[in-house]
Design a protein around this nucleic acid. Structure first.
Length: 152
DNA sequence: TAGGCCATCTGGTCCT
DNA sequence: AGGACCAGATGGCCTA
């Protein structure tokens, strides 16, 4: 399962490793912010390996933090790529409206339900509403489908 | 200014 | 052993 563009992902990873090897400071341009232990990053990776015997006599050698952090950043990058791909499948007004991650998940779920109702009822005119009437009767409270309300 | 959202770091756990 | 995944902590940015 390749992410949208594997070459850009590879470039991103390369950039991350390059940055990490140069300095362990803040990385990205956007929200990035070295968290609490940012300044200790490189030292933790190296010095703890020496075996200060952390809590409870933990003598396990730790891998260098920089490498682990870079992998985690790359993993987050992949997750965000998936969010972006999913977001591109959701129709909004305007089309390029900014959606938060939670909005992407909720709208995608709602859109799938809407498409499913469209298939089952065979109509694009408020299929979710029609679907509920057919299957559950009027007694149940009817929720409004965002995509049913969208005028064509 | 408070709250929402996000990126990043970190340690723990599970898997190969 | 090393990597993937996850959740918690932290701090920055943005908007109402």
């Amino acid at each position: 399962m390749a992410v949208s563009s594997s070459s850009s992902a590879v470039n991103y990873l390369m950039a991350l490793f390059a940055q990490d090897s140069n300095s362990s400071g803040s990385v990205s341009g956007s929200g990035g912010s070295g968290a609490a232990a940012d300044s200790e990053d490189s030292q933790l990776g190296v010095e703890l390996q020496g075996g200060q015997g952390g809590q409870g006599g933990n003598s396990r050698r730790r891998p260098p933090r920089q490498k682990i952090n870079a992998r985690e950043r790359y993993r987050t990058f992949n997750v965000n790529s998936a969010y972006e791909a999913l977001r591109n499948l959701i129709p909004t007004e305007p089309m390029n409206r900014k959606l938060s991650k939670i909005e992407i998940i909720r709208l995608a779920s709602s859109y799938i339900t809407h498409l499913s109702s469209t298939l089952e009822t065979g109509t694009e005119c408020q299929p979710c509403l029609l679907h509920k009437y057919e299957n559950e009767g009027i007694a149940r409270r009817i929720s409004i489908c965002t995509f049913c309300l969208k005028t064509k």
